[in-house]
């Protein structure tokens, strides 16, 4: 019964996060004086030379509908919630008119997911493993060196790290492409995957290094405090091997809070992924947002941001729901 209460509460939080986030996205553009319809009209009239007043008026009405700016504020809101949130329909993209925004995002989203999910999983696994070793045997020289490396890499912002990797491994050494050029249209599956992997190495590495650094630091402090607990000392007196103590006493007690931390870190990883994609010109949602901003594609900006919020909230929900399955001292609080 309690399990259902836990799941129910998490689902409510999930829905609330999406609702508040999406409402934010709806309100913000309407608070600013910049009017996308008038911006678009001035761009179109500038391109086509002259237009008479009737044409402009017709265009204005048409654009208002396409931008979801038609009707009262409440009508606009309900239309946006109904079409955007439940139908993933954000109207046509302006830079690729008239392809719907949702369809274009569908083409870019898998790349972002591939990049961030793989690097999160690898970083979490490696980082926690190293952190466990460093915390459990904290007086060893190797532990101190590993922690030192983690402390030096972790604080560097994604943007700077990506840039340094791009300059060193892309430009100076030339091991990997400086900017991604994935053969998306390649007929041969193998050719496509080869280019995908080759072009993903540097972007993934910059996400990976920051992530691993953080998991080493947090796991080290968790496991070193658990290693000093009485029950670990007792296990030593019983003559259990260090390996056994590390794996079943220290690891199992510290990994649980690392799963919660994983859920909370997803938003940050997504932010990092957006920036990394832009630095490496990687064809993901970050790149799409950048293009949309450059070409003032209003529908596209709203669409990508709404979908980002839904994606992050859902990923966090999934990580939260996994949590009780790995914690044997289940409490659902």
């Amino acid at each position: 019964m309690k399990a259902w209460k836990y799941i129910g509460l998490r689902l409510i939080t999930w829905a609330l996060v999406i609702w508040i986030g999406v409402t934010f996205v709806f309100i913000i553009p309407r608070l600013f004086p910049s009017n996308p319809v008038e911006n678009m009209i001035s761009r179109i009239t500038a391109m086509s030379g002259t237009m008479d007043a009737i044409q402009v008026e017709a265009l204005r009405r048409q654009l208002r509908v396409q931008f979801g700016l038609d009707g009262s504020l409440w009508e606009q809101y309900t239309t946006y919630i109904k079409n955007g949130l439940f139908g993933f329909n954000f109207g046509p993209s302006l830079m690729n008119y008239p392809t719907p925004v949702g369809e274009i995002i569908g083409r870019y989203l898998p790349y972002t997911l591939f990049l961030s999910v793989t690097s999160v999983i690898i970083a979490w696994t490696i980082g926690n493993f190293i952190g466990l070793l460093a915390g459990f045997r904290k007086n060893k020289r190797s532990s101190k060196i590993l922690e030192g490396i983690a402390i030096t890499i972790y604080p560097i912002p994604y943007f700077i790290l990506a840039l340094v990797l791009q300059i060193v491994f892309g430009f100076l050494l030339g091991w990997f492409p400086m900017t991604a050029n994935i053969l998306t249209t390649a007929k041969d599956r193998g050719v496509f995957f080869a280019s995908l992997l080759r072009n993903s190495v540097l972007p993934a590495l910059s996400l990976l290094l920051v992530g691993t650094g953080w998991w080493i630091i947090s796991m080290k402090s968790l496991s070193s405090s658990i290693a000093e607990e009485d029950f670990v000392q007792y296990a030593r007196y019983r003559g259990l091997s260090e390996r056994r103590i590390g794996a079943s006493y220290v690891l199992r007690n510290s990994i649980i809070s690392q799963v919660t931390a994983l859920a909370l870190s997803l938003g940050g990883v997504f932010n990092g992924s957006l920036i990394t994609e832009i630095v490496f010109n990687y064809p993901g949602v970050g790149k799409l947002i950048q293009q949309a901003i450059l070409s003032s594609d209003y529908n596209m900006i709203l669409g990508t941001i709404t979908i980002s919020i839904i994606a992050i909230a859902t990923a966090t929900l999934v990580a939260d729901l996994i949590y009780p399955f790995i914690d044997p001292r289940i409490r659902y609080s």
């Binding site: 996060v17 909370l264 938003g267 901003i293 941001i305 980002s308 919020i309 909230a313």
Partner: peptide, 14 residues
């Protein structure tokens, strides 16, 4: 909690 979980960068971009 909403503000902790919400991806801040997309909204800042907006």
């Amino acid at each position: 909690d909403t503000f902790v979980v919400i991806p801040s960068l997309p909204i800042l971009i907006l």
